[in-house]
Design a protein around this nucleic acid. Structure first.
Lengths: 244, 244
DNA sequence: CAGCTGCCTTGAGACACATCAAGGCTCAGC
DNA sequence: GCTGAGCCTTGATGTGTCTCAAGGCAGCTG
């Protein structure tokens, strides 16, 4: 965004220990000692312009990435052209965990706005997490959390109707934004209707119609990508199957 | 199944090093040394009768479980009664990875036939994997593989039609059975139509109808839970969107 | 400012799957 | 062998979402 700050990617001195995301990101719960060593490991950042790809499916897996600023989507695709957005990642969230299984990435990670990520060389992370119990444990928690999150999405895709899906999506988004100090009631979507639809297993027209319906029903104010949540409790009720 | 073998759960002497599943399970790729130490860790087995629950959502998380014999399903449920089968696990597959994130299990694991699992105390696994690089790496791979698998299910739920979903499900099942030395063309389903439906985001009637259609179309022979795959290539084509 | 281009909205009609309902199969227990 | 419970199959009907199509809005470029 601030073009004057655009220096060479490697020129940043990075330090988890002084990062304002350290309570959301990999360093959660680490002591002084672990943090200092983590600082050595996470030595570089990388800038990814809006629309650019951080890694492609099939790329050799070397590193994990922690989102520092910006916003990403990840998507998988099958041999035939089918395509599915599997998640949206914001500051403090990790990208690339899928790559460990195979030594190759199995999805694409695309920046939805100009973004910056911290590069975490994976083999060094393994080395360091053999030394530090807390880091090891924290890393396992992050992987496990991703599994739990995916199960939640499976529940959504397998058993919810369009309105419920979109409501659940919006509530999840605002909750994560709130944890990062943003307003819980007003947000700007970084993704298109089509990307939301892909994530939720819906067509873009259905997403659009559902936004309009939410507006009519007084849950939201929608103006393109600007969303204001007027009745959060109402959305929550909807997710909980109140209208069945 | 063999009731004469039903001794006390703890009475088995367990040994990963001599287990015929070691090429599918946690020990994959470990050397002699690591294996011996793993034998000490995985000291007990547990028998779970058909219909019984290995762990419930909300239970404190202590151990992972490796399926030794039998067949499980895992399912999550939301506050309102919504329910979703998130996976089916067979011999050599790990249960309980969801529990790490929270120190509590976040899904139920239910035996679909009389089963036996190896108990893997988690904190000890963490200890041991700080000593042995290969074990650490293997464990990370297993977690990552679960994430990749979940993304595949999201693709299925988000973008496939009923026939494609069921075909993909059957192919996945037979592939895993084949890796365990069973026939790739003939199988007995351990789960009901309703459980298949829950996993695939379909109603049981739709699952049943789709089985019937596959039979008419000459892909399968279906007789209740006995399935014979007549045209595997045809199913594969179906998954790849051939009929669109 | 005109004229794009990409994205979003809305309507009408089609279709895949769900729902409701009835009946059949299989196996266990008496 | 009969009976009942659980599971599966099949038909008729309903509906939520998709598809196809047209048009609108915002932002960029020349």
């Amino acid at each position: 965004m601030t073009d004057s700050l655009r220096v060479k990617p490697e020129a940043f001195k990075v330090a988890c220990s002084s990062c304002n995301l350290r309570e959301l990101c990999l360093p959660v719960g680490l002591g002084r000692n672990d943090l200092d060593r983590l600082d050595d490991l996470v030595a570089t950042r990388k800038t990814v312009a809006r629309g650019d790809t951080l890694f492609h499916s099939g790329d050799p897996f070397q590193s994990l990435y922690a989102v520092r600023t910006g916003f990403f989507k990840t998507c998988v695709s099958s041999e035939d052209g089918r395509d599915q957005v599997t998640g949206f990642q914001m500051a403090g969230e990790l990208l690339g965990l899928d790559g460990i299984s195979n030594d190759r990435h199995s999805c694409d990670a695309v920046a939805l706005e100009d973004s910056q990520v911290c590069v975490i060389p994976y083999s060094q992370l393994e080395d360091l997490s053999r030394e530090f119990t807390d880091l090891q444990h924290q890393f396992h928690k992050i992987m496990s959390r991703e599994i739990v999150r995916d199960h939640g999405v499976m529940l959504l895709l397998g058993s919810m109707r369009a309105e419920e899906r979109l409501a659940a999506f919006l509530l999840n988004l605002t909750q994560r934004l709130e944890a990062r100090g943003f307003s819980a009631s007003s947000l700007i979507l970084r993704m298109t209707r089509e990307e939301i639809g892909s994530y939720l297993g819906l067509k873009l027209e259905t997403v659009s119609r559902t936004f309009s319906k939410f507006q009519e029903d007084g849950f939201l104010e929608v103006k393109q990508r600007h969303i204001r949540i007027v009745d959060q409790a109402g959305l929550q009720q909807l997710v909980n199957g109140a209208n069945c």
